[in-house]
Write a protein that binds this DNA or RNA. Structure first.
Lengths: 91, 91
DNA sequence: TAATCATATTCGAATATTAGAATATTATCA
DNA sequence: TGATAATATTCTAATATTCGAATATGATTA
């Protein structure tokens, strides 16, 4: 296989290495969601959710847009994430 | 997407979330290697390498076999790993 | 069986991650 | 403009990760 940027890849995988963040990400596979939507689905407190979202944003996995009062998050590369999760899921 | 076992997936991704472990893994994409081979390729001390290998083994990413004095490691699912790294590399 | 090569384990210190509590910010609405 | 809804940030304590140093183990060879 060609050269792998291990630093970059490690950052990417680290972002996916926490169950809560994976839950967020797998919810986002179903489409854009605002923080409040996600809170309804996950059992974490709002500040904690916000921290994880921030982590995911810094790692380049999600992006967000302000929409009125709400902030909507979505995956930056839905196809890639789907592929990664599907692969690992089969393990 | 179907249900994702986030606990399991998180463990898997965490194993790949360290640059040294990714280096190990990408070396193993070229085939089986014993610890000493890997030491020649990476710039880490032997005990540290051994720790990372142990982590990768516990996470189910590699397996190893004793071969004479040496212990040879290989990927348990080379195709999956190649797919994951290729995907992330394109990011 | 003693020496040696190859690898693993243990321990401790430094650092990073995580979650909760408290608080701050930002956008809209009355 | 003040109140409120939605989200983010900061601080802190608990825990986890990482590395190096020292040491242990296991297989082979002399």
């Amino acid at each position: 296989m060609e050269y792998v940027d291990c630093q970059k890849a490690a950052t990417f995988f680290r972002a996916l290495s926490h169950p809560t963040r994976l839950l967020i990400v797998s919810e986002l596979l179903n489409g854009r969601k605002c923080v409040n939507d996600m809170q309804g689905l996950l059992k974490v407190r709002q500040p904690n959710l916000s921290q994880h979202l921030s982590f995911l944003k810094l790692s380049g996995i999600v992006e967000c847009r302000q929409e009125g009062k709400q902030r909507c998050y979505c995956l930056r590369d839905q196809k890639l994430i789907r592929q990664l999760l599907t692969g690992v899921n089969k393990t």
